[in-house]
Computed example of a mutant assay.
Amino acid sequence: METIISSGNATVDAIGQMDFSGSLIPHSWLYSITLDSGRPDMNAIFVLAEIVYWYRSSVSVNEDGKAVWKKKFWKEYLQKSIRELVTKLNLSYD
């Protein structure tokens, strides 16, 4: 794959060519979503990141060649069961 614009750093350019998908976790969540002990509640953060991922729109190209925003789920609202979330995130059901 050819780099169109270079940052001047080969590693940064290589990572810029990668197609990342999935959940992103803002650093602020590690300090605002916490247990009573003050430590981050990683299970809650992972679940929230998964939900936010599904609600982030994706871009596709329509027949006219124009970029359009679309949702990642079929119905009006995201429908995921607790079982689906814990299985995907490798968490315990309890």
Results as ranks from 00 to 15, higher is better:
K88A: 13
T87A: 10
G38D: 01
S92Y: 02
H27L: 11
N43H: 12
E84I: 10
R56V: 06
F73C: 03
F46P: 00
S28L: 11
T87S: 02
E84S: 13
S58D: 10
K71G: 04
W74G: 12
S23W: 03
Q79N: 15
I51V: 14
F20R: 07
I51D: 09
V52K: 02
G16K: 00
P26A: 03
R83I: 12
G22R: 04
V68Y: 04
V86Q: 06
D36S: 13
E63F: 14
K72D: 06
S58R: 13
D36C: 09
A44K: 10
S28Q: 02
L24P: 11
S28A: 10
D13Y: 12
A10E: 05
S37M: 05
L85S: 05
K71M: 09
F46K: 10
V59W: 00
S23T: 13
E76C: 13
M42K: 10
K66D: 15
V52D: 09
I15L: 12
G16W: 03
L91H: 08
W74T: 07
E84H: 14
K70P: 13
S32G: 01
D36G: 06
F46T: 06
Q17M: 00
A44T: 09
K70D: 03
A44M: 05
Q79W: 14
N9E: 06
Q17C: 12
V59Q: 04
T11G: 00
G16I: 01
M42C: 09
N90K: 13
F73Q: 06
L89W: 01
V52A: 07
Y77L: 08
I45N: 04
I51A: 08
D36K: 10
Q79K: 12
Y55L: 03
S28P: 05
R83D: 11
S21M: 06
L78D: 02
L48P: 02
P40R: 01
V12D: 07
F73P: 03
N62D: 14
Y77Q: 01
V52P: 10
L91P: 04
L91N: 02
A10T: 12
L89F: 04
E50I: 00
A44R: 02
G8H: 05
K70Y: 15
A10R: 08
M1S: 15
N62S: 07
I4L: 09
L30W: 01
H27I: 08
N90Y: 07
A44W: 07
Y31M: 06
D94Y: 12
V68W: 00
M18Q: 06
S57L: 14
L78E: 04
I15F: 08
Q79Y: 14
F73N: 06
I33D: 07
A49H: 08
L85V: 11
Y77W: 09
Y53N: 02
G38V: 04
V68L: 09
V47A: 03
E63L: 14
L35R: 11
S92E: 04
Q17F: 13
P40A: 02
A49L: 01
L48N: 08
Y53A: 09
L78C: 05
N43S: 14
N9M: 00
S6I: 07
